[in-house]
């Protein structure tokens, strides 16, 4: 209702302006979804795989729905013809990558890198066991000081 009231008064203003280069109506086109390729399904297998790869849970059906919607939206990209178009990684792709001198100017800041760790033990970070082979093995390559 507020919108309608606005429109009446604004229309009056518009008529008084110069003929403007600004288009009067929205210019977006509606995309025919039937012409798009089929969307990949977000099924149980995909949900399990993603949860494991992300170590983040969907939590509930809402999460799954959210992903389905995102995929549905992303699928619209196929309405754009990208034949012979190279993918763009970065807008700086034709810039020269800066290379550093081989000099040691960092590190030696044990306190800085450890100060925010919740759990430490004698200057080591502590993690639970995991991703280890069935038979326990100490992967120690050198002398432990």
């Amino acid at each position: 209702m507020l919108q309608r009231r606005l429109t009446y008064s604004v229309k009056f203003y518009i008529k008084r302006c110069f003929s403007s280069k600004v288009p009067e109506k929205p210019t977006w086109v509606t995309i025919d979804r039937s012409k798009l390729p089929k969307e990949p399904k977000v099924d149980r297998e995909v949900v399990d795989l993603l949860e494991r790869l992300s170590l983040v849970e969907f939590n509930n059906q809402e999460g799954v729905d959210r992903l389905t919607k995102a995929v549905h939206s992303a699928n619209l990209l196929h309405a754009v013809n990208t034949d012979n178009v190279e993918p763009m990684d970065s807008v700086l792709e034709d810039r020269i990558l800066y290379l550093r001198d081989d000099v040691v100017t960092d590190g030696n800041c044990l306190k800085d890198v450890m100060r925010n760790a919740t759990k430490t033990l004698e200057d080591y970070y502590v993690a639970p066991p995991g991703n280890i082979p069935l038979k326990q093995k100490e992967r120690d390559y050198g002398n432990k000081t």
Partner: peptide, 17 residues
């Protein structure tokens, strides 16, 4: 021209114009 997108409010359009 594509920046006149669906959902634009009249006051924004007016300011642009």
């Amino acid at each position: 021209k594509e920046y006149h997108a669906p959902g634009m409010s009249p006051c924004v359009l007016e300011a642009w114009r």
